[in-house]
Design a binder for these strands. Sequence first.
DNA 1: GTCCCTATACTCGGATAGCAAGTGTCCGAGTATAGGCGG
DNA 2: CCGCCTATACTCGGACACTTGCTATCCGAGTATAGGGAC
Lengths: 168, 168
Amino acid sequence: MRLSDGVEWAIHCCTVLAALPAGQALPAAKLAEFHGVPPAYLAKHLQAITGAGITESLPGPRGGYRLARPPAEISLLQVVLAVDGDDAAFRCSEIRQRGPVAGPPDTYRRPCGIARAMWRAEDAWRAELASTSIGDMVDEVLNNVPADQLDKATAWISQVDITRRNRK
Amino acid sequence: MRLSDGVEWAIHCCTVLAALPAGQALPAAKLAEFHGVPPAYLAKHLQAITGAGITESLPGPRGGYRLARPPAEISLLQVVLAVDGDDAAFRCSEIRQRGPVAGPPDTYRRPCGIARAMWRAEDAWRAELASTSIGDMVDEVLNNVPADQLDKATAWISQVDITRRNRK
DNA sequence: GTCCCTATACTCGGATAGCAAGTGTCCGAGTATAGGCGG
DNA sequence: CCGCCTATACTCGGACACTTGCTATCCGAGTATAGGGAC
């Protein structure tokens, strides 16, 4: 079982976007450079979270991505599902119906106990991710990252020409 | 994120093995036929859980696989990790250290909050799987599967020559 | 009749191809901007 | 001097190759068995 690398990138990007002044956008290329990841591939994932309504995109010069909602209202689960897909990790292929001792289809109305147990575990995973927001991630950064590091990052982002990047 | 199909097969096989008389073994080919899955591929996964000490194998005629421990002492988590590998689904690639604003390596002694949040969710997933055992799966089958279905399955397994299949 | 030996058949185990999904990249469509031109 | 228009450059968006890991398979090593033969 493996989670796409894009999940990590997307969450980091959302955290950075959440730390920007309200309404300000940042291009995908800058986000990629900031994190040291391939720009074209990161763009793919930014499109995914934009399609899910987590971020919104502004085309044209001075455009970019910005959060579509307050950071506290974006859960990690929403980002993960947007990037990685909302399919369950465990997929019941109903092998109980495939053997020589299989009964009539009507016998298998309810999912088998194994699938229910696996899905229950996934529900616990989702619940934990749903209870954590991008806002929590921002708070964690502000509390644990040294001040000089924060200043350094802020300065780098400011070097991007933002004169009018926070348009309607 | 996707879990290997072998996980489902392995748990079903363990459940069947748990329902056998104590000490009795069943060949991989019969387990595959019972579940309607490719024999050679199922064998691969049975090797995995055998290597993890969940099942044990008996070579030669009248051999096969059987549980190495009581069903109640085998958690679903152990089976899942044996088949799918014990790597975490979320892998932190430390992109916070890769940008132009990265600080000295000593700054990043502790894992970042994003990785911690993701791993916390995985811990919840593992805890749920660890609290469910193969014995629970057997109980669920005995309680929810119609009696005639159980008889049918038992009869099919008995058709396998078991005269001396439960050896030392 | 009992014991031993040998040939057999059955089992697991690891090494080997095939394929799908994730990974990585590129170029085209669309838009706000900035400068120049006319009034 | 002010307003409009056009060309520009920058942005996102979807379509196109490549690689890793899961899927699927096969053949060889090892063993308990079953039968036959000798004592």
